[in-house]
Simulated scan of single mutants.
Amino acid sequence: MIRDLSQTLRAILSQPGLPAELAAAQIAFDRPAEQFKPQQTTVDLFLYDVRESVELRSSEPVIERAGGEAVIRRPPLRVACSYLVTAWPVGGTEPALQEHRLLSQVLQVLSRYPVIPAQFLQGGLAGQEPPLPMVAALVDRQKSLSEFWTALGNRLRPSLTVTVTIGIDIFTPETVSMVLTGELLLGERTAPDETALKAGTEVRSYRIGGRVTGAGDAPVAGATVTLVERGISATTGGDGRFVLGAMKPGSYTLHVVKGGTAKDAAITVPAPGGENYDVQLT
């Protein structure tokens, strides 16, 4: 993921329509130590800090439902990656001014994007949600510039910092079967601040879900599913699934119609172990 981020920043700084000096510069990711002496004009982005973004930490999972199953994805680790950006002009008569101009062009380009647009995202970052925030010219007050450059093994020179926060998946998605029956319990509480219900006041009702399929177990969309005894109906979605409710426990009949094909299925609510409310319409 971090390599993909570096390639993403390279894509931003290599896009068409950039100022001539920046467009002609190569984009590197080397440590700007004393021995770093590029042979052509270069913009160097040195990754010097990687840490979790505690402010963006989330514990809310994302749940995707399809085919009677639910895929639970725990939120990714949010990681802030900081790059030291320096300019290294080669040739010309006033290298210092060329360096300043090149840095200002980089700053202008990166500052256009508070979040990185999708067209620049590379590798595993493509399609990542939420969008990746980017901050250019960020001031790190905990960093002493002179000590920082001494640690790098070079003399102090103009630079700016760009920080991008990415998501890194560290948990394996969990796939579970979707609930077939939902139970609703109504009644009078034993006290306003208690959840227990008074005996004899409980009323149980259920909501059921199932799937209508055709030949080859293909989902049947747009079928009408009716609970005959209650006279309530639902229409299946693109995945063939339907939901009906509410109803008391008991025996019922599902009447399924699609075009000129119909089928009745006897069901019990709640479903006994191993049974479901799926109907094959053939």
Rank of each mutant, 00 (worst) to 15 (best):
R155N: 02
F120S: 01
V164R: 02
K263V: 05
L110S: 02
S111A: 13
L160I: 14
D30H: 08
A23C: 02
A218L: 13
P249N: 09
M1I: 07
D239Q: 13
G250R: 08
E69A: 05
T190H: 00
L138M: 11
G91P: 05
R230P: 02
F36P: 07
V135T: 15
V54W: 04
A87R: 00
T235W: 03
T86D: 08
S251H: 05
L184N: 12
D217Q: 15
A23R: 10
L184H: 11
R78N: 05
G91I: 01
G274C: 07
T268I: 08
A271Q: 07
Q105V: 05
P89G: 04
G238M: 11
T261G: 01
G231T: 03
P61G: 12
G216T: 04
S104D: 12
P76C: 08
L281N: 02
P173F: 07
R65N: 12
C81D: 12
Q7N: 14
E21K: 14
R74K: 13
A196W: 02
I63K: 09
H100F: 12
V90H: 09
S53M: 03
R141H: 13
Q122L: 02
G153M: 06
L254F: 08
W88Y: 07
P114C: 09
Q35N: 10
R241F: 01
R51W: 08
A191S: 08
G210S: 09
A266I: 03
S58E: 09
G222R: 09
